[in-house]
Amino acid sequence: MAIFGKTAIASNNKQSTIIGMGAIFKGNLTLNSMIYVDGTIEGDVVSTDSVVVGKNGILKGDVKAKKIVINGEIRGNVVADSIEILAGATLMGDMEVYELSCEPSGRFIGHCKYIEQELSSSYQTIEPDKE
């Protein structure tokens, strides 16, 4: 579970984005890197890597990523190859997932649809909109 010490996410010198405790970000984010949220995001997040919501983190919006780890709270629909809901964490929304893990006292309020194969093969590097 990444940042929380149970499972390491391979870094290979990848970049990371951090929304620290007390920070509030309003808007949509599109990333080619891992994002760690310990503050608040009000908007959708798309990452070709991982989205990690820390113990103090709140994400109000839809999330699509290769891997989602929740230790805080997500209020929105999620799509990922792998979703981990840690003890005390909450996911309020529907999910589409290939592989799901939920620890005791982790809460999921919504509907779950298992997908037949990983989405990873469909992930590509995200490029900025060209006008």
Rank of each mutant, 00 (worst) to 15 (best):
M1G: 12
K6M: 04
I9L: 13
K14D: 13
T17Q: 01
I18F: 10
I18A: 00
I19K: 01
G20H: 00
A23W: 03
I24F: 09
F25K: 05
F25G: 00
T30Q: 08
T30W: 02
S33A: 14
S33Q: 13
M34Y: 00
M34W: 00
V37Q: 05
V37K: 05
D38Q: 04
D38R: 00
V45I: 15
V46L: 11
D49M: 02
V51E: 05
V53A: 06
G54E: 03
K55N: 10
K55S: 08
K55D: 12
K60T: 12
G61A: 08
G61M: 08
V63T: 10
K67R: 12
K67T: 14
R75Y: 07
G76K: 12
G76D: 11
N77E: 10
D81I: 08
I83K: 03
E84G: 04
E84T: 11
I85A: 03
L86M: 13
A89F: 02
M92A: 12
D94T: 04
M95L: 15
M95F: 06
V97N: 11
C102A: 12
C102V: 13
S105T: 15
F108S: 07
F108Y: 09
H111G: 04
C112P: 02
K113E: 09
Y114Q: 11
E118R: 14
S121A: 12
Y123F: 15
Q124R: 01
T125W: 00
K130T: 06
